[in-house]
Design a protein around this nucleic acid. Structure first.
Length: 828
DNA sequence: CTGATTCGGATTTTT
DNA sequence: TCCGAATCAG
């Protein structure tokens, strides 16, 4: 009979039912020997080096399930950190399925969510309101913009984005203002100014009781360091720490892991006992609670967040950090075909300074990788659309296909063509719902209610919708607050004494009255009980604020046609809060705001949707699809030109390419364009250097860069085809392998160069043209003319209303699907 | 204070 | 190309 600690049990102890026979662990069935070891190893530290597609989620979930089923740990003693909320949800679900029971008290979340949870609980200790606001990068920019303006720092070349990234870097290194001030060179005026910006920024966040993303981690580390007793509580609780995507942790996150896995020393053990917390069974011979067992999973080849402070050394030096750590290498791939893996292996092998790793599969070579070079981005997009259509006709579901790109700007051409070609798609990330101005406005109302100290939120809604409170009044309020040591909210309440016009004063008092009233709605009947019973639901408060604040009414009454959509978006938000209320009964407004603040792009993925997913390569990490299209594989884009100046840039870009390749299960498509529009101007694009790194024979070029650039009638030739006889050798140099494409003469191969005009033979084959065809009706047998594809015959028409789709056999361009309403066609 | 207009500048990736 | 800031007329 085992008795182990259960932190969630009031008594602190619970008797564990006898463990199942230990010699037959059901959670290693069907695992390969390495996976099995990763699941079964017990010790203070375990590093699982998991190549792409090697089943690491499986290993992690089985490891957790095994710990719980064998009664080595209660669920509540487990803290598992994932990269996205979606990954967390998936892991929770899979552990639940393995155990066949609910996961009481298990923490499976992102770093940020876990920290918010801890910080809200301990907020008072570090002088923060429990309802602190989480500022996103846009909020950060707004504040920095104001500060820079006030300090006249723009004359010294400071930009909000620049300052934000510098502050973020410092926070990721756990350097706060005072630390920075101590090390700053005060003879450098630039540094002095930056220090003032940093100091002022920190002051404003503190005054508003707000934290930015980086603070969430850093403040938690500070909390643990400043309050050993608090730290001891969490160290006692979490006995097993599991961290996914360890290669992408930054210094602050690394420190947090260290703080959590430290032993609880005898003095703190006494403290815990004095507080009535049990430690029996946890103590070792030295009368301390040993550090939690740490399992990290990662793959340094997939480290793509160095720009955000991720430090690859965290993983490469794990064995040094945790002496005696076991390392398990997972190399067998269960996701992709060998052709895809061979391409990935070959590409990543070009990164020096890495441990050799070779992905392999037992499942066979599979199809060749398909390559295509378009003349323009639209041409490229048309290729993707056509292939998607072909795959779909062959029986592949749209949701099993994904299109990746390096920058969000690349979605434009893809979307234009997809819409026209009736490809159902969804952009993951990009301009997110919650980043829309009207949504941020509505959210600001909620934030102002939850956190009255939040000046940013107040100022945002002060004159939204228009109430006649202009910049002058706003400044007056801010000045009054500053001089009388009041919060902005208090200054608003005192507006009557400011000598403003009666209309303006009335508007201010009206707004602050609405907010105060809403705040009252949020108070539970019995605040002391910790339950939220009696408090208004989030949706009720939002409905009240919208009705009284007049945001939707103003949008509906506006003459701007776009405002109608904005009003609908706000209604959509209201519907979302209703859903939140139903799904999370008893949750508070702050819970809602937290959840919204921490959603990531990948969290939006909806497995059930029958659409193709479009996303950046960064968002794609951790996902997999049956078919993957990697687009824009060009110099300047991948590697991105901006990466050239960053240390380790090209290597990181190569890892990004590697991540993209390894997302594909069965089919991989690589495409690029020979010219790409940038700010309306057409620039010549060169094939990415990484393309040459893929061995010949793996790619089947439908149209190679050679075709697109040669003058006059060259044979289609693979990008990496051997040179003809007589030209000497099969060198590995780039020029040799580019065949005819190499004579792009003096153009700098490694950058995107502007040219006056596209050359005639590159004239746009496919454009993004659309046209409003009204209610043009077509039926099978009709002849039509398309601006890009020429003449063709309608085979059949499907769909209803504005979504009517013509299936057309073009005389020259082959079969295409067209959305009748907008395709650039005319009936002949 | 509001709304229209013009002009200049920007684009990497994201919790 | 598009977005935001600056400018000016009501």
């Amino acid at each position: 009979m085992t008795i182990i600690l259960d932190p969630d049990e009031p008594a602190g102890w619970r008797e564990a039912p006898s463990a199942p026979a230990a010699d037959d662990n059901p959670f290693v069935q069907g695992l390969n020997p390495e996976q099995r070891e990763a699941v079964e190893y017990r010790g203070p530290a375990l590093l699982i080096v998991a190549g792409a597609g090697s089943g690491k989620t499986r290993v992690l979930t089985h490891r957790i399930a095994g710990l719980i089923a064998s009664r080595e740990a209660w669920p509540s003693q487990i803290l598992a950190i994932t990269f996205t909320n979606k990954a967390a949800a998936e892991m929770r679900e899979r552990v639940g399925a393995l155990l066949g029971e609910a996961d009481d008290g298990m923490w499976i979340s992102t770093f940020h969510s876990a920290c918010v949870r801890i910080l809200r609980r301990e907020a008072e200790a570090i002088g923060l309101s429990q309802t602190f606001t989480i500022y996103d990068s846009a909020d950060q920019r707004t504040i920095l913009k104001r500060i820079i303006k006030e300090l006249d720092a723009d004359t010294m070349g400071f930009t909000p984005a620049g300052a934000a990234s510098k502050i973020s870097k410092l926070k990721n290194e756990l350097a706060d203002v005072e630390t920075y001030a101590r090390n700053a060179n005060l003879n450098d005026p630039h540094e002095v100014t930056f220090l003032s910006i940093f100091r002022e920024y920190s002051r404003r966040l503190r005054d508003a009781s707000a934290l930015d993303f980086d603070d969430l981690i850093a403040e938690t580390v500070y909390l643990f360091r400043a309050f050993p007793k608090t730290a001891a509580l969490y160290r006692r609780r979490f006995r097993h720490l599991l961290v996914d995507e360890y290669q992408d942790t930054n210094h602050a996150q690394y420190s947090l892991i260290h703080e959590l896995t430290r032993p609880v020393e005898p003095e703190e053990v006494h403290e815990l006992e004095a507080q009535g917390l049990h430690v029996r069974g946890l103590l070792d011979a030295n009368h301390e609670i040993p550090g939690a067992s740490l399992t990290v999973v990662g793959d340094s080849d997939q480290s793509i967040y160095a720009f955000r402070g991720a430090d690859i050394r965290n993983i490469s030096e794990f064995e040094r950090d945790f002496p005696g750590a076991r390392v398990v290498l997972l190399e067998q791939n269960y996701r992709s075909t060998q052709n895809i893996l061979s391409a990935a292996n070959a590409v990543i092998a070009n990164n020096f300074d890495r441990k050799d790793k070779n992905l392999w599969t037992a499942d066979g070579a599979g199809e060749q990788i398909v390559g295509y070079t378009g003349y323009t981005a639209h041409d490229e997009a048309q290729f993707v659309a056509d292939e998607i259509d072909a795959l779909h006709r062959a029986g592949m579901a749209y949701r099993e296909m994904a299109v990746f790109y390096r920058t969000n700007a690349q979605t434009r051409a893809l979307e234009e063509i997809f819409v026209r070609s009736a490809v159902p798609y969804r952009v993951i990330g990009g301009t997110k719902f919650y980043e829309r101005a009207e949504i941020k406005d509505a959210m600001a109302y909620l934030i102002a209610v939850a956190n009255p100290l939040d000046e940013l939120a107040l100022r945002r809604i002060l004159n939204t919708p228009k109430r006649g409170i202009g910049p002058a009044t706003e400044t007056a309020l801010a000045k009054f607050a500053d001089e009388n040591d009041l919060s902005f909210r208090e200054a608003m309440r005192a507006a009557a004494g400011l000598g403003l016009g009666p209309k303006v004063t009335g508007a201010i008092l009206g707004l602050v009255g609405i907010l105060d009233q809403a705040a009252l709605m949020m108070v539970p009947t019995d605040p002391a009980s910790g339950s939220n019973a009696g408090a208004a639901k989030v949706s009720e408060v939002l409905a009240f604020l919208l009705a009284e604040g007049g945001l939707v009414t103003a949008l509906r009454g506006s003459r701007d046609p776009q405002d109608e959509t904005r009003a609908e978006n706000v209604e959509e938000l209201l519907a979302q809060t209703k859903a939140f209320d139903t799904e999370n009964p008893g949750s508070t407004l702050v819970d809602y705001l937290t959840q919204v603040s921490l959603v990531a792009a990948a969290d939006e993925l909806d497995d059930a949707s029958g659409t193709v997913s479009l996303m950046t390569l960064h968002t794609a990490k951790g996902l997999e699809f049956e078919a993957v299209f990697l687009t824009g594989i060009e110099e300047g884009l991948l590697p991105h030109q901006m990466s050239a100046t960053e240390p380790g840039g090209p290597a990181e870009e190569r890892r990004l390419f590697y991540v993209g390749i390894t997302r594909a299960r069965k089919r991989l498509y690589l495409s690029l364009a020979m010219s790409r529009a940038q700010f309306g101007e057409v620039a010549v694009a060169m094939p990415s250097r990484y393309l040459q790194e893929i061995p010949e024979g793996l790619i089947d070029w439908k149209q190679s860069p050679g075709d697109a650039t040669s003058r006059g009638g060259t044979q289609p030739r693979a990008l990496n085809a051997r040179r003809g006889p007589g030209s000497g050798g099969y060198g590995r140099s780039a020029d040799d392998r580019f065949g005819s494409a190499r004579r792009l003469e003096s153009l700098d191969r490694f950058s995107v160069t502007k040219s006056e005009a596209p050359r005639a033979e590159w004239a746009n084959k496919v454009t993004g043209t659309v046209r409003d065809n009204g209610d043009l009706t077509l039926e099978a047998g009709d002849r039509i003319r398309h601006t890009d594809f020429g003449d063709g015959t309608v085979q059949q028409v499907t769909g209803e209303g504005t979504k009517r789709i013509a299936h057309v056999a073009f005389d020259a361009a082959g079969a295409k699907k067209l959305l009748i309403k907008i395709a650039p066609i005319e009936k002949l």
